[in-house]
């Protein structure tokens, strides 16, 4: 689904990741790990097409990312960032319905099918009871689940999530991790999630992308080598 080849990303002179190659498949939950400032957000933003790589190539669903328009990308990839969305007066349901934008006409008017998908996304994210609440009246955790619901409503084969569990309590983190694993396995989505909550998500993941700047270490979750690498990068010596 996502294929990176010889990718180099950075800001101007400063190179974050150099000549990295990795792959994320459909039906798999890939967890992106790395220390603060290792380039997790930059890598996700690059795959989302919000940032241009210095060199290298990204293929999404068989197509070269650099040749795709915004709407085409939006129909293939959904995205959850760390940015907080607090729009006064905007109902949670209306925010989630914005996920339907790549599929609606110029006014963004939603049809019955869009309403059905929006309702299902709210249910999946556990935000059904909050759908009529305004976005500026939600807690940080609820707000985060609302933007996850928005990405689910976008109904794309690929989902990119940048630290989606940061503001959630432990039950919330577990719920989101299980939900993402289920979306990958049951709906065949290709999901990449960056996180610091290694304990919660690693157990549900299929694959690990470990950033060890300027390199990436890729491994299957059942691989004992990758566990040692994670311990090394995070310096969790026993």
């Amino acid at each position: 689904m996502i294929h990176m080849e010889g990718l180099t990303i950075g800001y101007g002179e400063k190179i974050l990741l150099r000549n990295i190659s990795a792959e994320a498949r459909a039906g798999e939950l890939t967890v992106l790990l790395g220390r603060n400032g290792s380039g997790k957000s930059s890598l996700i933003r690059t795959i989302e097409g919000l940032m241009k790589p210095s060199s290298g190539k990204i293929t999404v669903a068989g197509k070269d990312l650099s040749g795709l328009g915004r709407r085409e990308i939006a129909r293939t990839v959904s995205f959850v960032s760390t940015e907080r969305v607090r729009i006064p007066g905007l109902k949670c349901r209306d925010l989630v319905a914005m996920g339907r934008a790549p599929w609606t006409g110029w006014t963004g008017k939603t049809g019955p099918e869009d309403e059905r998908i929006t309702a299902a996304a709210l249910r999946t994210a556990g935000m059904e009871d909050f759908q009529d609440r305004a976005m500026d009246k939600l807690s940080d955790g609820e707000c985060q689940k609302a933007v996850i619901a928005r990405a689910i409503a976008q109904d794309t084969p690929v989902m990119l999530l940048d630290e989606p569990t940061a503001f959630l309590d432990v039950p919330g983190k577990v719920h989101v991790a299980s939900m993402l694993a289920r979306l990958a396995r049951e709906e065949g989505k290709c999901i990449i999630v960056s996180t610091h909550d290694i304990g919660t998500i690693l157990g549900k993941a299929d694959k690990v992308w470990l950033l060890d700047p300027p390199d990436i270490i890729v491994g299957s979750i059942s691989d004992s080598d990758i566990m040692n690498e994670i311990r090394r990068v995070f310096a969790m010596e026993e």
């Binding site: 919000l50 939006a74 990839v77 940015e83 969305v85 934008a101 963004g108």
Partner: peptide, 23 residues
């Protein structure tokens, strides 16, 4: 004519772009 992209911009430029807006 911009009513839809303006709505999407309420949640920021990144989210607007991720929903298909040519910001």
């Amino acid at each position: 004519a911009l009513c839809k992209p303006l709505n999407l911009l309420l949640s920021g430029e990144d989210y607007a772009a991720s929903a298909g807006t040519d910001v």
